[in-house]
């Protein structure tokens, strides 16, 4: 096991040399990139990376350019997890056989996928990788929508959001189903480490990434990725919208260790009403009408209940 990079504070962290390059094609203000930076900069170890088809992938490896300073692979939409698992298996084989070119270096294996690639189309592949116990980290860039293809709903899209395949209209308030609880599902795999992170809470996030890198076995990171294009807010507001998400507890920050021990890692000093979070985004604009306003109250009730549940889980340590 290699040494964990020492990051005492943000000034320390800012001495990191990014291994992700600019002039990629992500939208101005895209949180994906902020998340990728916080993941990659959390370690000085070598990295072997994979990405599922999605915004991150199509914006960072468009021939003849790559934005990756570590080895990186993309196959398809559903199999970023399996791609990195295959590379990890090869690493183990070559280590056993004494054929690694740099045997003294221990790379980290990380796969990135959007929520479409994670919650939906790639779910089976991720489950397989986690059940098999590959030594890898899977990072879901959760922007709650198929952003790369123009804003279709995924099973991460929350109730009431207007997506292009669940548009709000005269008789519809948009998405009808609640977001899938990937954190619980991945924890149920018995993974050594599962955590929800948000890039605006960088210290919490980087600490979790480092814990994940230190764990033996498959690690799942659900990273909230505020999407300027599909959530419909101005690009400069990515961090302030993210703050609303974490401080309203719409995206509570917590970790689950060994499938059971749940720890809440961020408790907002002032919990913000969910209404403020919803109101800041165009995708929820239609909720602020007489016929739909009851959904905002339902949102608040649901978020309160989830927070209550997380706290009870934490207390119970089960």
């Amino acid at each position: 096991m290699s040494e964990i990079k020492k990051i005492k504070n943000l000034k320390d962290f800012s001495t990191s040399a990014d291994r992700f390059e600019g002039a990629n094609l992500l939208c101005p203000g895209c949180a994906h990139s902020i998340i990728v930076r916080e993941v990659l900069n959390a370690t000085n170890d070598d990295l072997i990376l994979a990405a599922s088809t999605g915004c991150l992938e199509v914006c960072t490896a468009v021939y003849p350019y790559t934005s990756w300073d570590a080895s990186w692979i993309h196959i398809g939409f559903e199999n970023g997890s399996s791609a990195v698992a295959g590379a990890e298996a090869m690493y183990k084989a070559l280590k056993t056989k004494g054929r690694l070119k740099q045997p003294d270096r221990t790379p980290k294996f990380v796969a990135f996928g959007g929520d479409g690639a994670t919650y939906d189309i790639g779910f089976q592949w991720i489950s397989g990788c986690f059940e098999r116990g590959h030594n890898m980290m899977y990072v879901c860039l959760d922007n709650e929508v198929y952003a790369n293809t123009g804003g279709q709903r995924s099973s991460s899209t929350p109730i009431g959001a207007s997506a292009t395949t669940t548009p709000a209209g005269r008789i519809s308030y948009g998405e009808k189903r609640n977001k899938k609880d990937m954190m619980a599902i991945m924890a149920a795999h018995g993974a050594p480490y599962v955590a929800q992170v948000a890039p605006n809470k960088w210290k919490d996030m980087v600490a979790k990434i480092q814990k994940g890198f230190a764990a033996e076995g498959p690690v799942y990171i659900n990273a909230m990725s505020a999407c300027t294009t599909e959530w419909k807010f101005a690009p400069e507001d990515t961090i302030s919208i993210s703050d609303l998400a974490t401080d309203s507890l719409v995206f509570p920050l917590y970790e689950i260790i060994d499938g059971t021990q749940l720890n809440i890692t961020y408790r907002p000093k002032n919990i913000i009403p969910v209404r403020d979070y919803l109101g800041a985004q165009g995708r929820f604009k239609h909720l602020f009408t007489k016929q739909n306003e009851y959904l905002i109250d339902e949102w608040q009730t649901r978020i309160d209940a989830k927070w209550e549940y997380l706290q009870r889980r934490e207390e119970a340590s089960v």
Partner: peptide
């Protein structure tokens, strides 16, 4: 930390300037 485009140039814990080749103006 929050620049999505690696365009804030920091050296030795000091903000030095902006990389205008990679800044998208977000």
């Amino acid at each position: 930390i929050y620049c999505p485009d690696m365009s804030i140039i920091s050296r030795d814990k000091k903000m030095v300037g902006i990389d205008f080749d990679h800044c998208k103006g977000c």
